[in-house]
Design a protein around this nucleic acid. Sequence first.
DNA 1: GTGGGGGTTCCCATGATGGGAAGGTCAAGG
DNA 2: CCTTGACCTTCCCATCATGGGAACCCCCAC
Lengths: 163, 163
Amino acid sequence: MSAREPGRVTIGEAARRTGVSAKMIRYYESIGLLPAPVRAESGYRTYGPSDLHTLRFVRRARDLGFSMEAIGDLLALWRDRDRSSAQVKAIALDHVAALRRRIRELEGMAGTLADLAESCCGDDRPDCPILDDLAESPRAESPRAESPPTESPPAGAARAPDR
Amino acid sequence: MSAREPGRVTIGEAARRTGVSAKMIRYYESIGLLPAPVRAESGYRTYGPSDLHTLRFVRRARDLGFSMEAIGDLLALWRDRDRSSAQVKAIALDHVAALRRRIRELEGMAGTLADLAESCCGDDRPDCPILDDLAESPRAESPRAESPPTESPPAGAARAPDR
DNA sequence: GTGGGGGTTCCCATGATGGGAAGGTCAAGG
DNA sequence: CCTTGACCTTCCCATCATGGGAACCCCCAC
C-alpha cells in the first residue's frame, strides 16, 4: 500500500475495493470512459475516493448489462447536474427493451430445443429427432413439407438478425 | 454459376443456398469444423449437395445458439451412424440449461432496471433513482423493493459471465 | 542490498462475424 | 480476341470486453 497521498490508492487496491480488475480500469481509461488519474512520481496511477466511487458506478452498470457506450452516457449524465432524469430513463428503458428482445430470442431457442430433446428418447440407439431437425433444411418454426436435400430452388434464405 | 462438375456450386452460390455467408464458410473450414472442399482447377472451392446439407445443419444449429464447439460435436454425431441418441440429447440439454441460465441473468437485469425506471419520473429535473442506484456503492443484492407481490429474491447479477 | 510483490507498457487471444485490399478467373458481349 | 464486371482467392484489420503474459521499473521490509 503505497500512495502516500492521503486517501489515494494504487490500481490494485482500487481493483480490490471496487471489483473492477486492474486490467479493466486501465482499459476503461484507454477508451476514454474514465479520465486519466493522478500519477505518483513513480508513474503509478493513484485513485482517490471519488475515483473509486466512479469505478463502482461502472461496475454496477456492467452488472446490469449496459454496454460501454451506454455507460459512458450514464457517467456523463451522472456528472451533469443539469441533466434531466428523462435522459437517464430513456437509456435505461432502451436497455430494458434490448434485454427483453434478447430474452425472447433465447427463449425461442430454449423452447425449440427443449421440445426436440423431449421427443428424443436418449438411449443407445442412433435415431434422434434432434439431429433430424437440424438436418432438415427448410428451417421453419412449423413443420413443413420437405424436399430431398438435393438442391431445390433458392427459396430465399431468411436472414435472422442473430448474434 | 461456374463449377462445371454436375451439381457442384461455388462458395457464393453455396452461401445463397444455405444462408451461411461465404466468409463464414471459409472460417468454418479454417477452424476445422468443415472439411476442405474439392477445388476446381481454378482453385475455387466447389460444394456438392451433401456439403450444402452440412452447411444448412450448421446454420440451423447456430440459429439455436449452439457454440461452434458444440456444433462440431453435433456434426460428428450426425455423421456417426453408431452414435447413441443419448449423447445428442445430453448436448442439447446442456445447451438448454445454459440458455435458461442466461435468460435468468438477463431477466434479473431487466427486472432491476425496469423497477428503477418505473420509480424514475423521467422529467426535466435531475433527480434520478436510476443514477442513485448505480452510484450506491454497497451493491445490495436485492433492492428490488416495491412490494414483494409473489416474487422471491431474483438473485441479482453477481459476477455474471455475461455478454 | 536484496527479494518479493506490484506497478508500467505492449502484444496476443478469445468467438463469431464483417469489411476491404490486391490479385486471379470466368462468362458474356462487342 | 479482348474487355468488362461479377466472382473467387488469400491476407489483414476491426469489433466487444476481458484475460494472459513478457519485459521492465518501483517500493518497502528485512
